[in-house]
C-alpha cells in the first residue's frame, strides 16, 4: 500500500520524467544520411542533450533543490553517465524516437568507438530489457542512481541518503505491485546498478579512445 505522500512523490517524478525526453527533432535527424564527421557531431550533441534533460529532470525531483548546491553538482557529475545508460536502455528497449532506434544503433556501432565497449553496452541494454521494467521503474531507478550518497566530493551524505531511501522504498513497493510473481525483481534492479557503475568507469576510456581515433 502506498501512502498519500508516496503517491504524490511518484506523480511528481513521473510528470518530470515524461516532460524531459529527448527532443523529437533528434528523431527526424536520425533518418538523415550523415557522413562520419556529421555522425560524430550528432552523437556528441545527443550526449549533451541527454545531460541537459537529466538536469531538468533532477531539478524537479522533490527534495533535490534543498540539497547543498555544490552537492547537487557532485551528484549530477557522478551519475550523468549511469543515468544516460539507463535512458538509452529504455530508449532501445521501448523503441522510442519514432521507431528509429535501429538507425541509432547502427550509427553508434559505426561511430568508430571500439566494439570492445559497444558490445557490452548493447548486451546490458538487452539484459535490462529482459526485466520488462515499467516506465515508472525506469524513472525511479534513475532518481535512485542520481541520489547516490557515496559519490566523490559529497559533503552532506546523510541528506542525500535520506532522499534516496524514500525513492528506494517506493520503487520496492512498485516492484511488488508490477511483478507479483517475481519477488526477486527489486533485488535484480539493484543488481543492475552495480553493472552501471562498471560502465561508468569504462566510459571515460571509451570516450578517450574515440577522441584519439
Amino acid at each position: 500500500e502506498f501512502t498519500q505522500e508516496e503517491i504524490q512523490l511518484l506523480q511528481y517524478v513521473m510528470e518530470s520524467y515524461n516532460k524531459n525526453r529527448l527532443p523529437q527533432d533528434l528523431a527526424s535527424k536520425l533518418v538523415d544520411n550523415l557522413s562520419t564527421d556529421d555522425n560524430f557531431v550528432f552523437l556528441t550533441t545527443m550526449a549533451t542533450s541527454h545531460v541537459q534533460i537529466l538536469v531538468e529532470f533532477t531539478k524537479k525531483i522533490p527534495g533535490f533543490q534543498t540539497l547543498d548546491h555544490e552537492d547537487q553538482i557532485a551528484l549530477l557529475k557522478g551519475s550523468a553517465v549511469e543515468a544516460m545508460f539507463l535512458r538509452s536502455a529504455e530508449l532501445f528497449n521501448k523503441k522510442l524516437l519514432d521507431g528509429h532506434t535501429d538507425v541509432l544503433e547502427g550509427r553508434i556501432r559505426n561511430s568508430g568507438i571500439s566494439h570492445e565497449y559497444i558490445n557490452p553496452m548493447f548486451s546490458f541494454y538487452k539484459s535490462l530489457g529482459e526485466l520488462k521494467m515499467t516506465e515508472e521503474e525506469y524513472a525511479l531507478l534513475t532518481a535512485v542512481v542520481i541520489l547516490t550518497p557515496d559519490r566523490q566530493y559529497i559533503k552532506d551524505k546523510e541528506s542525500v541518503e535520506k532522499l534516496q531511501e524514500s525513492f528506494l522504498h517506493i520503487l520496492e513497493k512498485l516492484c511488488k505491485q508490477h511483478h507479483p510473481n517475481n519477488p526477486q525483481h527489486f533485488a535484480r534492479l539493484l543488481g543492475r546498478l552495480t553493472e552501471l557503475r562498471t560502465f561508468s568507469h569504462h566510459h571515460t576510456d571509451m570516450v578517450m579512445s574515440w577522441r584519439v581515433s
Binding site: 545531460v51 538536469v55 547537487q72
Partner: peptide
C-alpha cells in the same frame, strides 16, 4: 578525462542555473 569532465560540469552548472529552461 579531466577535459571531458570539465565539459560535463559546465553543462550541468548551466542547466542548473536554468539556462535551458523553457
Amino acid at each position: 578525462s579531466s577535459g571531458s569532465n570539465i565539459g560535463l560540469e559546465a553543462i550541468i552548472r548551466k542547466a542548473l542555473m536554468g539556462k535551458y529552461d523553457e
